[in-house]
Design a protein around this nucleic acid. Structure first.
Lengths: 333, 333
DNA sequence: GTGAAAGCGCTAACAT
DNA sequence: ATGTTAGCGCTTTCAC
């Protein structure tokens, strides 16, 4: 900037005025400065600007902490966040943690050192205590996919209970009674709410709970596959499956295909799957809307940054039932 | 930092030394400073540090410019980049452009204002001229998925030609002769190389070119579907399809399912698809390795940042043929 | 081993 | 309409 000032023969402050489109600049100076800027290939230093601008407390960037940025669901949230951030000229710095609490903490600290103006957290870790002081100190926080524990902050979540309920009622409507609930452990808010939605839909349908086992301790996709096979080959197999996570849905799909039972046994999964309409049959799902979750989370964050001091609120994004075939199979045995 | 110094009764410089783990600090001061840091919840300001540290030219961050961060392929690259960057304590700032050249340019300028130490570009836009001056000025550049035009810079790409050749030979080995090439337009480096790989494999196999039509101007998934249907219902339909982009593969899959021809007609797609093993039949693909592409691109970038002055080089990442069924179908008519 | 002073690139506040 | 000065939070340089 000093160089630009020297080249155009004006003060450094005039260059600053031109760069920031401030008023009270003569045409003459403006054009000379712009000429020098082009000639030198000058770009103003956003860090130095933000350092001075607000006592060093703003960086025009927000942080996004997530299990893995490569997860399509997380990537869609990221895109939503980015969209809203870009509209405000803000950058998004994303950090993957692989659900390792230590890495989550160090990622957050790294972002804090960069003085991000706010933090969006899409993690499953349980201890957010370390965030407390930062949050009180003024860094806005928005949680995504779960409500925070140990901190009072905004959250944006899918309507797990209603979604799981809709899936369950859908299966009951096809005539199913022996519906199994498949979920991954350990306990999390979304898992609990899915179970709650399932249970209350079952209760409302008058189906005895004894016919609807809940398996809530699955470990991963392979475990889901194994357990599904065991269930389907038992003496009283379910006629329908509700899977509450996409990993589990994929495992269940594999199990059904392996046993050749994909046509007689119904399946509805929570969370959409790519190419789910190209399998045979297509997979009926309760779709979440990760892009909306991202835009809403960012909107909430910016509201806080703009001084919203209301007490913490949770935005609930509705889900959508997408019938594709697997959920519309009537009971066969 | 001033506050920490005041609280612990030492100079601001001593705090700086402790924070940066510099030597020549007494145990006494170190512990007093660390106590004050904890008490105040102090985090050093990375921007201010980097501003002074190297004359303001380094930010400990790199930029990643991409069509859309929500694209699973791009997200996997991003993850690879992030992994290598995190190992060096660098942040990754990603920017989606939706393949709009204007947005690409403004995204790059926004990153330059943040003084990113380097740029990884995974875009399809053709004019990189605007990057020339920046690159000459010293900002390292690495292109991903394509080699640059108008700038001399490193690139990391998949082995399109060899991959397409492998797919083609695979189909020829099953006995196919009437193999159609399906590709998206407009022209791009990867598209051209895929075509080249296909053509030379056909030539080597002794199949007359007249039996292997090349369709290279598809517009999108729906267009691919429409054109595939037209091909398969023509008087001399292909017995096998090679699709050179995942969008096209999905369109072709839809067409095959719609016509009920997924079992008699063979299909190999370039680029892997999620859940491609759960369709019926599974989709045989030439898989790219986006995570490796990301790590290699970041490695190249850091090498340049560390002073590597060799002339621009292109890293070629091999592809992998994954047989899943659709590519192993022999010709039926 | 410790600290004071200068300055990174920029902008706020106050001249002129 | 333009320029000067001080200082954002930190590190560098150099003195003690």
């Amino acid at each position: 900037m000093k160089d630009v000032a020297a080249l155009s023969g004006v003060s450094i402050k005039s260059v600053s005025r031109v760069v920031n489109n401030e008023p009270h600049v003569s045409e003459d100076i403006e054009s000379r400065v712009r000429g020098a800027i082009d000639q030198l290939g000058f770009h103003p230093d956003a860090r130095a600007g933000s350092l001075r601008r607000s006592g060093g407390v703003k960086s025009e960037a927000i942080g996004f902490v997530v299990s893995s940025i490569a997860n399509p669901f997380a990537a869609a949230i990221n895109r939503g966040v980015e969209k809203v951030a870009t509209e405000r000229g803000m950058a998004v710095v994303a950090s993957s943690t692989d659900d390792d609490p230590d890495r989550e903490e160090s990622a957050v600290y790294a972002l804090l050192r960069r003085r991000v103006d706010g933090l969006i957290l899409a993690t499953v870790c349980n201890s957010h205590g370390y965030l407390l002081s930062e949050h009180q100190y003024g860094t806005p926080l928005v949680f995504v996919g779960r409500e925070p524990s140990g901190v009072e902050a905004d959250a944006v979540v899918s309507d797990y209970a209603v979604g799981a309920g809709a899936a369950t009622k859908h299966l009951v409507q096809q005539g199913h009674r022996r519906i199994v609930f498949l979920g991954i452990g350990p306990d999390s808010q979304s898992a609990r709410e899915c179970q709650g939605g399932f249970r209350s839909a079952i209760r409302q349908s008058g189906v005895p709970a004894s016919e609807t086992p809940l398996i809530t301790d699955l470990h991963d996709e392979h475990d889901a596959e194994r357990r599904t096979i065991r269930l389907l080959t038992s003496h009283s197999p379910p006629t329908a499956i509700f899977s509450s996570q996409s990993v589990v849905t994929v495992g269940a799909l594999r199990a059904l295909q392996q046993l050749g039972l994909q046509h007689p046994v119904a399946l509805v999964g929570f969370d959409d799957l790519p190419l789910a309409d190209l399998t045979d049959p297509g997979v009926t799902v309760i779709a979440q809307h990760p892009y909306s979750i991202g835009t809403q989370a960012a909107t909430r964050l910016f509201a806080r940054m703009d001084g919203d001091n209301e007490s913490a609120q949770t935005v609930v994004i509705p889900t959508t039932l997408i019938p594709r075939g697997s959920g519309e199979i009537p009971p066969q045995f």
